[in-house]
Simulated scan of single mutants.
Amino acid sequence: MVKPTLLVLAAGMGSRYGSLKQMDGVGPNREAIIDYSVYDAIRAGFGKVVFVIRHSFAKEFQEVFSAERFGGRIAVEYVFQELDYLPEGLTVPEGRVKPWGTNHAVMMAAKAIHEPFAVINADDFYGAEAYRTIGDYLAQLDGSRNRYCMVAYDLNRTLSENGTVSRGICSVDGEGNLTAMVERTQIERVADGRILFHDGGADEPLAEDTPVSMNLFGFTPDYFDYSAAYFKEWFAANRENLKAEFYIPTMVNKLIGEGAASLRVLRSTAQWHGVTYKEDKPALMASIERMIAEGKYPRNLWK
């Protein structure tokens, strides 16, 4: 059975958070969220972790997150996402400073990954259950094509008490496959207890258990070929929009809509944790302490 790879999207600096949050200590020994992600991936049978980073902080990042840090229990590689890392024939439009988005980041790993792989955000704490769920599914896909997956969370387990959030709202058919994913912004729990999103100025309610994407996807290597081909088309259509980003849901929706691939939605009832805002950090740290007390993690991950 193949060991899947974990692809960690760590190139973003997190403008709202105000620091290199991928390396910010949240555990009792200053472990970062990345440490818990890699620890959970190792326990779930992943064989390699690939970090997508930027050259601007590569030295600092690689000094911290090395194979030695993880005790040699998982292979480690690094790839780079930069504004000018584009397919041949494409050039950066004048005035463009914003990176090209999460699916462009995924594309950077095409030469490093040749097996089924999971994609995560560096600053999201997904929980051990999520890695076991997606790891078991990916381990069965060796040699498969066009069969993807994602772990979806209940919306009410992904909110922040410190501001609104954006989430990919998932529609799922009777067989558990994704039919569409729509990004909703400015989602929050309001005073009367309801969960609303404020897209377009309208207040629309959402159910507590609405399945949402937290960018925990699973793909087979053919996804790289689809992405490289479609990026050129997307680039031509969005060249004049200097803030447009090539997101993973953009690519997924295209493949699902055209029937080129299927994506199984694996549900998780776990509590998601993240640091969308600096004020989220104390709550995350308290949750980690509770999980340590419950025996879910050792107090020192890598001792």
Rank of each mutant, 00 (worst) to 15 (best):
M1E: 12
V8A: 06
Q22W: 07
G25I: 01
G25R: 02
V26R: 00
V26W: 00
A32V: 04
A32K: 02
A32G: 04
D35C: 02
V38W: 00
Y39W: 15
R43E: 12
G45P: 00
K48I: 01
V49K: 00
F51I: 01
H55I: 04
Q62N: 10
E63M: 11
V64K: 15
F65R: 05
A67W: 04
A67G: 13
E68W: 10
R69W: 11
F70V: 03
F70S: 03
V79R: 05
V79N: 01
E82P: 06
L86W: 06
V92T: 10
V92K: 08
K98Y: 08
K98L: 13
P99M: 05
W100H: 05
N103I: 03
H104Q: 09
H104P: 02
H114A: 14
E115L: 05
F117S: 03
A118W: 01
N121V: 01
A122P: 03
F125T: 04
F125K: 06
Y126I: 03
G127H: 03
G127W: 00
A128Y: 12
Y131I: 05
T133N: 10
Y137V: 04
L138K: 11
S144K: 15
R147S: 15
Y148F: 15
C149F: 11
M150N: 08
V151Q: 07
A152I: 04
R157G: 07
T158R: 06
L159A: 06
T164F: 13
V165F: 06
V165M: 13
S166V: 07
S171C: 13
D173R: 11
G174E: 14
L178W: 09
A180M: 09
M181N: 07
V182A: 08
V182G: 02
E183T: 15
R184Y: 11
Q186N: 13
A191M: 12
L196H: 09
H198D: 08
H198N: 10
G201D: 08
D203N: 14
P205V: 07
L206H: 09
E208S: 12
V212A: 05
M214T: 06
N215I: 11
L216C: 02
G218M: 01
F224W: 00
F224I: 02
A229Y: 04
Y230T: 02
K232Y: 01
A236G: 10
R239Y: 07
E240W: 03
N241Y: 04
Y247G: 06
E258P: 11
G259T: 13
A261H: 06
S262V: 12
S262Q: 12
V265G: 04
R267G: 09
A270L: 10
W272D: 05
W272Q: 07
H273W: 09
G274Y: 08
T276R: 14
K278Q: 14
A286K: 10
E289M: 13
Y297L: 07
W302D: 04
